[in-house]
Design a binder for these strands. Structure first.
Lengths: 336, 336
DNA sequence: TTGTATGCGTTATCAA
DNA sequence: TTGATAACGCATACAA
């Protein structure tokens, strides 16, 4: 691979490897002149200190791992961008992993990461329904871990989330204020923590406005686009809701497609609002009202939290919880 | 970090470290029974072979690096997803880096990666205008490198691109067929290879249909949303084009915003088509006609190519060029 | 089939 | 200020 190493460099300069090594560390005592000689030669020979050797020695990798349910997703892209910007500024590298919502992959990624490859992990989880005690089994040896957005409530580790309950409550209330009396809630996975919290906001908003909650208006969807659209079409036809609140972005899109097909006019026949961080929501037909999460900020905050843990482990309590605010953006899809 | 290593494992089992080491490699001769004993104990102690130690030994990292201009971008997210799926299947990890279109960052990333951290690199470049000879200076020691989408034409290394010229030609021709006679071309960076190729397709299509090419209809944009919209608004007001062809996705969005502000009706006053891999183009107002690139496929193909280079370096010629096809999708934004 | 010994490239300790 | 040396954890050549 890289055939010029510290030894070759040392020989070329008639110095010992330790002296050469010192030239690349800031603190060590070294004659300024020799240091410059070394750096010059290093540049000339195109020397790069071997990352694996140093990290084996130093027992750290300057790398953090990011695990998300999916990569081709506007929300997670933004979050990763936020993480990358912080990591990059600190001279850290990031490894990214997509679980595609397969819990086994998550477990496998996490376990493999405990081989020294990463110094810490930032994760949005994918297996609420499963037994995530595997994280506790890593016990004392567990890498610093920060959850963001989708979390395991029974695992004690710092997390960055959004004010889902309040946001859902506001969004639902907004629909009610716009005249909706029969509001469908589109869930992606009832067991996910965010699913539950968001649904509760919906339920409580209904209650406050004396609208009876009806279980059949909770429509459980999958990750399959086409399936969802078909499912929604029949649900809308049967239930005739006058408002739809979608708990994730893609379900808002599915709703639009379903409405197009059913020739339902948004917002006149049915109003739609959904969680979404899509910047071009105003360009949709009609412009989509959204609960906009500060996605990039979430990533950034999670990364900053993780770095604090790395730098000063005791400073961050395992039940640290940072809550960022989402914003309800009213657009045409919910106008009167 | 991880305090259970091969030595502890060996002691716990009353075996030598070499025997234990062998248990984790498939080829080595080892008694099946002992192997199982070892694996069982490894599981019990939660042993993970130290990645840095093995890679220092073996001189490879089972890691590939992906460098893109930006992460919060639908197109690159899809590409990364494609890369991740291939890498993950091969048991490889991926490091991702965003240059944010800063050439110096690209150079720095690439140079640092030559310290053994990665076995190969997949990159969509960001510094066409600069001197990218730095890649040649790495000479023989250069890591296997695959370009995708945005490439340096003067660097000899395999690449995966799309049929930009033909696609641009078709898109422009499509606008002409729909009645446009004054078509603006929105460029993001005239010096980028894809910029040039795409523009040439546009120019040649005009020529074929006897429309005089006018340089003022080439509108150079930046990466700043707001700036672009303002810029486009004045350009549209002044030039009054009846068609717009955008060389990248975000410029189509900027065009929409500009048209909204100017109260220009798309497609009646002005027709719009743009390069874009956005799945929800049909949901835009109006549905956006696109030149859709197989983004995920591009990533997948690039990764496959890289793995071939890693497995069999001589099999892949440095001037290998894989061309994938984009597709012109006609929607309302260009209807008559 | 298993064990011993050595080295991968680096850094830290200690001595000069 | 510099150099010799050991050690990080693992994998392999060679010996047993």
């Amino acid at each position: 691979m890289d055939n010029v190493n510290i030894k070759i460099l040392a020989e070329a300069l008639n110095l010992s490897t330790s002296t050469v090594s010192r030239a690349f560390r800031d603190n060590s005592d070294i004659n300024l002149a020799t240091k410059e000689r070394i750096l010059a030669m290093a540049k000339q020979l195109n020397y790069q200190p071997n990352h694996y050797a140093s990290n084996l020695r130093e027992q750290k990798s300057k790398t953090i791992a990011v695990i998300v349910p999916e990569l081709a997703n506007n929300y997670f892209s933004l979050a990763i961008q936020g993480i990358e910007s912080v990591a990059s500024a600190k001279g850290y590298h990031i490894l990214v992993y997509a679980t595609n919502d397969q819990f086994e992959k998550e477990v496998s990624f996490i376990q493999h990461l405990h081989n020294g490859r990463a110094d810490g992990i930032i994760m949005s989880v994918s297996g609420e329904a499963n037994d995530h005690n595997y994280l506790n089994e890593l016990a004392k040896k567990r890498l610093p871990l920060v959850f963001f957005d989708r979390v395991y409530e029974d695992i004690e580790t710092p997390r960055v989330i959004t004010n889902d309950y309040e946001a859902s409550f506001s969004a639902t209330e907004h629909l009610i204020n716009q005249g909706c009396v029969k509001i469908a809630y589109l869930a992606v996975n009832k067991t996910l923590s965010i699913g539950k919290t968001r649904m509760q906001g919906y339920i409580d908003a209904l209650k406050k406005h004396n609208i009876t909650f009806s279980d059949e208006l909770i429509i459980d969807c999958t990750n399959n686009y086409k399936e969802n659209i078909d499912h929604l079409k029949s649900a809308f036809t049967e239930l005739k809701p006058d408002g739809v609140f979608t708990s994730v972005e893609r379900l808002a899109f599915a709703t639009y497609y379903a409405c197009y097909d059913l020739k339902l006019d948004v917002p006149n026949d049915i109003k739609v609002i959904g969680f979404s961080s899509l910047e071009i929501s105003p360009l949709l037909n009609p412009a989509l009202s959204t609960v906009t999460q500060p996605a990039a900020d979430l990533g950034k905050t999670a990364a900053e939290l993780l770095f604090k843990m790395l730098e000063n482990p005791d400073q961050i309590s395992p039940n640290t919880e940072v809550i960022l605010k989402s914003e309800v953006m009213q657009r045409r899809s919910t106008s009167k």
